[in-house]
């Protein structure tokens, strides 16, 4: 994957396919520690195998497939950036996938287009309770799709207008906190 947003898209898809109705995505930058943390959590069923097995590229839950590369690829990207990868139980009840990277590591892939990624998930999964946190330097922006939707009249709540607004707020949040590319 050439950027973190593609990993995020892939992992949100995993959550949705696993039956999650709530997905939380967090981008936390700590300039003091020189780290960038990406977290994807859900309220799905969680893991039915050990974390080690789940990250094995030859493990998949998709019928008819032999390989499951999403977690393995994310783990490889995180570790290539001098980072630590973790699978744990989410406070939402499902799985939390977490990667902490060295922000200045020469092999750290860029964040990519997070606003486009999240808004495309909003478009294709209008019923998903998708929440996003962007934090840096102790400041944070929280963008919940359901809250953004409530600002619109009922007939427009599942539409493009909400996705566009979510995209703008993510862009504004990233710019306000000067999150690294």
């Amino acid at each position: 994957m050439r950027d973190l947003s593609l990993h995020i898209l892939d992992l949100i898809e995993n959550s949705v396919r696993a039956g999650a109705s709530t997905v939380f995505v967090a981008i936390d930058e700590s300039p003091a520690e020189g780290t960038l943390k990406v977290t994807i959590e859900d309220n799905g069923p969680g893991l039915s195998v050990t974390p080690e097995q789940a990250a094995d590229p030859f493990y998949t839950t998709k019928p008819g497939k032999k390989t499951g590369l999403g977690l393995g690829f994310f783990r490889a990207s995180v570790e290539a950036a001098g980072g630590a990868f973790m699978l744990r139980r989410s406070r939402l009840g499902g799985l939390a996938v977490e990667g902490v990277m060295q922000i200045g590591h020469v092999d750290r892939i860029p964040l990519g287009d997070l606003a486009l990624t999240i808004s495309s998930v909003v478009c294709t999964n209008p019923k998903l309770d998708l929440r996003c946190r962007i934090s840096a330097n102790g400041k944070e922006h929280n963008i919940a799709v359901s809250e953004v939707a409530e600002e619109f009249p009922a007939p427009e709540r599942d539409g493009l207008a909400v996705a566009r607004c979510v995209s703008q707020r993510i862009k504004a949040g990233l710019a306000d906190l000067s999150v690294s590319e």
Binding site: D56, P57, F58, K66, T67, L69, G72, F73, A76
Partner: peptide, 8 residues
């Protein structure tokens, strides 16, 4: 290991 999975 991802290399092997991709190769397969």
């Amino acid at each position: 290991m991802n290399v092997i999975a991709v190769a397969a």
